[in-house]
Amino acid sequence: MAGAYANRKVLPGFKLTLGFTVAYLSLIVLVPLTAVFLKTSVLTADQFWAQITAPRAMASYRLTFGASLLAAAINAVFGLMLAWALVRYSFPGRKIVDALIDLPFALPTAVAGISLTAIYAKNGWLGQFLEPLGIKIAFTPVGVLVALIFIGLPFVVRTVQPILEDLDTEYEEAAASLGASRWETLRRVVIPALFPALLTGFALAFARAVGEYGSVIFIAGNMPLISEITPLIIITKLEQYDYAGATAIASVMLVVSFVLLLVINLLQAWVARSGGKES
């Protein structure tokens, strides 16, 4: 009897849930992704290489991944500030601001793209003031960045917010009573506790931005080598009935995104471990 129990985990159903997890992931994620690589396999290695290293494709990777990383970083900074303000202070209309954060989630991306373009075009609300200063946003790579910041914002706020709510102000008070300056409290108490969540938010915002098509397409201007995003290159190839070429580019996106997300995950694990050692 005792021996039989010794092998058991406290929670029942390990095999069942693991089996279900694997089957579900395969069906929903792995099978479609495998199809991407299979469709590519009709190309020879040379053709594949030529497709994925074409100047237009290369320029689009730089824009898509560069703008996505930058947008996620900007969102990480300002998202953290927003979450802080929403959790730590109470002010009139806080609930409304809180609800506004989620709007980019819910809004159809095309609507977001069209509104942003209308606002930042040279005759738009903001564009008319920026244009005389020589700042062009709509139909430039900056426009792409603006759209990606817009759609990525909720991810950071919503991942940081619950952690911040759980983080008692007592910790900050304790730090202060032990003689830490405000900056030290922030740097050594608050940020370490929030960092894993912040990284998750960053990763989510980044992943969302890499795949974004609907909103960017309206504001980008879509000029080859300048403001063409990688998803547009894929759509363009599909329009030419070039499935293999489209999936070749898609597989590059998949691999790069996977590697970047993996790095972020590893970073998170490392932070969690080293954070544990310190305390």
Binding site: Q51, R56, M223, P224, L225, K237, Q240
Partner: peptide, 13 residues
């Protein structure tokens, strides 16, 4: 003209 790498791509890139 329109296939990848042909005339349209050349004039644009």
């Amino acid at each position: 003209h329109f296939a990848d790498g042909t005339i349209y791509d050349q004039i644009m890139t």
